[in-house]
């Protein structure tokens, strides 16, 4: 099937994310204007106007009613998904890098950048059902000493918080006490993405060190490594197949455009999860791919790139028919 191209952003994409039902796709970019689209046809449902700087991250609530955005304009904002209205705003002293609803949507975290003398900090805030009661006070604040956090997310049952750092370290924090539980450095460079398996047993990371890795959530043991020749900006786990998707690349590749190619050469690469073998590539973007997401039903995926485009690809039938014999030969 032909990919769906989403035109709407004027600058490079920073994050694409589906809602739980998979009917909506939320996108944020450096152009300060988050968008929401119908995933099945790429039609734009609306945008969220108000930010004055690049938007680095987003999260959408379980019921698809509320949207959180993290921006370089020193705010973290809460929006009504349908109304497009800004419901609440947290003002910060530095850029907000990451944002995430806790499971149950009654809490959220956001991470502020280490700049202008401020340390990289995780802020845990309560989200009120009734906005009348919403406060801009934080519940907890975890100061990160050392390399700043580039990615952050909640662990299972909101007991822990996982952060990935500039130097390739991954840290688990106790979400209640703010104590550091565990820290390992298995990547050699910036961790640019972290996405969870549905059951929170493991997660996948993407790093500028040209690899993506799967970590056991509890032990932070590296279970799998996928090696490429480019910085990896995003890594996603298929919800239905033992496959992963990687996106990345570097600007030098842009020379390929000179030939006036109709199709960009930047590729989303697919690997078999346990075998670590590459199984396919999807070309299309004209710049490095910054963010990837599988649709919750696993039948399509979205990619956002430096070229300002979002592409939604539906897998062909043969993708679902394709199987390694070995998968069924096992005990």
């Amino acid at each position: 099937m032909r990919p769906i191209l989403l035109h709407g952003h004027t600058r490079s994409l920073t994050k694409v994310k589906y809602n739980r039902d998979g009917d909506l796709l939320f996108t944020v970019s450096k152009d300060a204007k988050p968008n929401v689209w119908f995933a099945h046809n790429g039609e734009r449902l609306g945008s969220y106007d108000g930010h004055n700087g690049a938007v680095w991250d987003l999260d959408v609530s379980y019921d698809s009613k509320r949207l959180l955005t993290a921006s370089a304009d020193n705010t973290c904002r809460l929006w009504g998904v349908e109304s497009g209205k800004e419901l609440f705003r947290w003002n910060t002293r530095t850029a907000v890098r990451q944002v995430a609803f806790a499971q149950g949507d009654r809490m959220a975290l956001y991470v502020t950048d280490a700049t202008m003398g401020q340390p990289s900090t995780i802020w845990v805030v309560a989200i009120e059902e009734d906005l009348e009661n919403q406060s801009d006070e934080f519940e907890r604040k975890i100061i990160i000493n050392g390399p700043k956090a580039t990615v952050a997310s909640w662990g299972d049952l909101n007991k822990t918080i996982y952060t990935g750092h500039e130097d390739g370290t991954i840290t688990i924090w106790d979400a209640e006490t703010g104590e550091k539980i565990k820290s390992v450095k298995s990547h050699d460079s910036v961790i640019s993405d972290m996405q969870w398996a549905p059951d929170y047993g493991y997660f996948i990371t993407a790093s500028k060190d040209h690899t993506a890795k799967i970590f056991d959530a509890k032990t932070l043991r590296v279970m799998k490594t996928y090696t490429t020749q480019r910085p990896v900006n995003s890594a996603a786990l298929s919800p239905i197949r033992p496959h992963i998707a990687l996106g990345g690349g570097q600007e030098a590749m842009e020379v390929t455009q000179i030939g006036g190619a109709k199709q960009g050469k930047f590729e989303t690469r697919f690997f078999h999860l346990p075998f670590e073998e590459e199984i396919g590539r999807v070309k299309g973007h004209f710049g490095p791919i910054n963010t990837l997401a599988f649709a919750p039903d696993g039948r399509s995926f979205a990619s956002g790139a430096e070229d300002g485009f979002v592409r939604i690809h539906y897998f062909d039938d043969d993708y679902f028919e394709f199987n390694y014999e070995e998968e069924s030969l096992t005990a």
Binding site: P242, P274, Y324, E325, E326, A331
Partner: peptide, 13 residues
Amino acid sequence: VLERRIKLWNEWA
């Protein structure tokens, strides 16, 4: 190759 894959598949399972 087959043996390697079977091993990996089982390990993961």
